[in-house]
Structure formats: structure tokens, C-alpha cells
């Protein structure tokens, strides 16, 4: 009887469409990093919805409302920790996912478009992290916003929609909060859907060393979903553990005009570059996006084995070392300029 009910439900919901073959290597950590990122993102969305019930997007009250949440609301500190650590975990899984895709040359023909969508998703994630940093409205947040508005103003007419002048009388914090909880998540979710659609359409990229890319062992996709559920449970357990042990930083209301903090580690590399040359703030981010976007169009060879791609591997190592070096440098260096 139960089986009959499940079969009927499956038929009515069209779940039999999920019963298609995919390659067996899908059930591995390195080919499930995207799925883990989606798990972390899901936790972010759910915890963010609850957090939003306690947040007041007003420059006078925003910071106090967060202190109230963490100090007075039952489990409020844990909820905020889960939101924060979900973002941290997602940063790591997304970074590893991008490294894996590059390492296995999964961006190559016919998956160029999905690589570009992935780059777009990275930009969205960085933007979500930035806006999330700003809306807690402490000293770090204020300084992040100060840098942002400086860049927006330098961009002239193109930066106008991102400045206070665009909607005078409306605090920028309100608009950034709106972007953080609605505009950016909606765009991100749509892009994730598109990303998954093209994974399905072009199929999971074969193993680089596979002798016959089309003839490997296959498993049912529902089996892969079960694997991803398990991975997602692990991600959630890790997030809970981190939230339980380490609370995210939260300062008090900012002191306007001061520049004394450093950004979160995801952004501290650009702090190092800014120290070298202030216009880096404007020039470097789009250059990096263009560099990543150009990858599948510059590297058009059919070769997918990493040993046969010395230039690509050198570029990968250089990029990782450069970012790691800049993050460490940004951490230890002291500010040598003021805006």
C-alpha cells in the first residue's frame, strides 16, 4: 500500500524525471562541491529569513537590533552564527568547486556558457557577502560602505545608481539591505537554476583520464541526490558546530570618519592591493572577472588531463598563491593611506 502511494505521488509530482543515468564519479567529494555549496546557500536563505524578522534596516537602529538579537533573543546568537558560518563554508566550497572545475578542464567545449554562469554566481556571492558585511552596521561595515561609495562615485554616471544621490533621503543602508534580502538572492537562485539546467543539458563532465568519456559506469540520479543529501547533512552539522563554538564578530555603532579596521578575509586581498595603489579598488575586480570569463575562450584545446596542461596548471597555482599571499599580506600590513 505504501509503495503504491509512493508510486502515485512520484507520478503526480513527475519525480520519475529524476531517474536518469549519470556517471558514477558524481558520487565523490570533488564532484559534489557544487551540491555542498547549494546546501550551505539553502541554510543561508532559511536562516536569513528568520534573521530578517529581528533586523531593523535603519542606520540608527540596525546595529542595536543585532546586539538585541544576539544578547536577548532565545537562540538569536546561534541563528546569527549559523548564517555567518554558512557563508564562510559556502565561500570555501565554492572556491574548491571552481578549482576542481578548472583542474579537470570542465569549462571546455561545450560547457563554456555554464562556466560564465558560474563566474556570474561567484560575483553574486561576493556581492551578497559584501552587503551582508555592511548591514551589520559596525565600524567594519561603515568602512566597507565608505570604500564602496568612493568607488561608485569614481565610476561617474555608471556608479550613480549605487550612491546616495540616486535616491536622496533614503539611507543607503536600506537599499543595501533590500539588495541583500531580495534582489541578490532572487538573481542568485535564478542563476543556480540555470547552472543546474546546463549541468543536466551537457551532462556531468567526464573524468579527464577517462579512456571513453561516454562509456563509463553510470548510476541513477536519485542515487546521486541521496549522496548530496548526506553531504548536505555533513555541511549542516559543520555549520552548527562552528556556530556553537565561535561567534561571529559584531562591533558597536561606527565612528564616522575613522578608518581603523580590515575587511573580512574574503576581501582582505583587495585591501592589500589598495595599500599599494588606491585605484586598484576600481580596476582590479573587473579585471579579475574578465580574466576568469576569458578562460574557456583562451584555452580551447581538447586536452583535459592536468599533466598535459602545464600552462593552465601554472596559471592555477599562480592564482591560488597570489590570492593566498595577498590575503596574508593584507592581514599583516598596516594602512598607508587614507581615502
Amino acid at each position: 500500500m505504501l509503495k503504491g502511494f509512493c508510486d502515485t505521488l512520484k507520478e503526480r509530482l513527475g519525480l520519475q524525471l529524476l531517474e536518469y543515468d549519470i556517471e558514477e564519479h558524481a558520487n565523490s567529494i570533488k564532484y559534489s562541491l557544487g551540491g555542498m555549496s547549494i546546501s550551505a546557500f539553502s541554510v543561508l536563505v532559511i536562516s536569513g529569513i528568520v534573521l530578517a524578522q529581528f533586523y531593523i534596516p535603519d542606520p540608527e537602529r540596525a546595529n542595536n537590533s543585532l546586539h538585541y538579537l544576539t544578547d536577548q533573543v532565545y537562540l538569536g546568537w546561534f541563528l546569527r552564527g549559523i548564517h555567518f558560518w554558512s557563508a564562510e563554508v559556502m565561500t570555501v566550497t565554492v572556491t574548491l568547486h571552481v578549482i576542481r572545475v578548472f583542474f579537470t578542464a570542465s569549462y571546455k567545449n561545450p560547457r563554456e556558457v555554464n562556466w560564465l554562469i558560474g563566474i556570474g554566481l561567484m560575483v553574486m556571492i561576493v556581492t551578497l557577502m559584501f552587503t551582508g558585511t555592511v548591514i551589520k552596521w559596525d565600524q567594519e561595515a561603515y568602512e566597507a560602505l565608505a570604500h564602496f561609495t568612493w568607488v561608485a562615485e569614481k565610476m561617474g554616471i555608471f556608479g550613480l545608481p549605487l550612491t546616495e544621490q540616486f535616491a536622496q533621503g533614503v539611507p543607503l543602508l536600506n537599499r543595501i539591505y533590500m539588495a541583500h534580502i531580495s534582489l541578490l538572492p532572487i538573481i542568485t537562485i535564478l542563476m543556480i537554476g540555470l547552472h543546474l539546467f546546463y549541468v543536466k543539458y551537457h551532462k556531468l563532465s567526464p573524468l579527464p583520464d577517462a579512456e571513453n568519456p561516454e562509456g563509463g559506469k553510470v548510476i541513477d540520479f536519485t542515487n546521486h541526490m541521496a549522496y548530496l543529501r548526506r553531504a548536505g547533512a555533513g555541511v549542516f552539522a559543520l555549520i552548527c558546530f562552528l556556530a556553537l563554538v565561535i561567534s561571529p564578530p559584531l562591533g558597536n555603532q561606527p565612528v564616522l570618519g575613522l578608518e581603523v579596521t580590515k575587511p573580512p578575509w574574503q576581501f582582505v586581498w583587495i585591501y592589500a592591493l589598495e595599500n599599494l595603489w588606491v585605484p586598484s579598488l576600481i580596476i582590479v575586480p573587473p579585471l579579475i572577472v574578465m580574466f576568469f570569463a576569458a578562460v574557456p575562450f583562451v584555452d580551447q584545446s581538447k586536452e583535459r588531463r592536468w599533466r598535459k596542461r602545464p600552462i593552465a596548471m601554472a596559471a592555477l597555482v599562480f592564482t591560488i598563491v597570489m590570492f593566498a599571499g595577498l590575503i596574508i599580506w593584507g592581514k599583516v600590513t598596516t594602512m598607508t593611506h587614507s581615502m
Binding site: Y142, A146, W150, V170, P171, G251, E259, T261, M335, M339
Partner: peptide, 27 residues
């Protein structure tokens, strides 16, 4: 500490800060 002299504080006027108490502790 360094001041953001060029910083435009538009949109932040609502914040009632005492400029004489510019002390920040790192979180």
C-alpha cells in the same frame, strides 16, 4: 587613526555620534 577625509557621509546623518568620543575597539 587615519580619517576618511574624502568620505561622504550622506545617508548617515541620522546617526547621532559624539565626535569627541572617537574610540573604536576591534571586534
Amino acid at each position: 587613526m587615519p580619517m576618511m577625509d574624502g568620505m561622504d557621509h550622506k545617508g548617515m546623518e541620522g546617526m547621532d555620534h559624539d565626535e569627541s568620543m572617537q574610540t573604536v575597539e576591534l571586534a
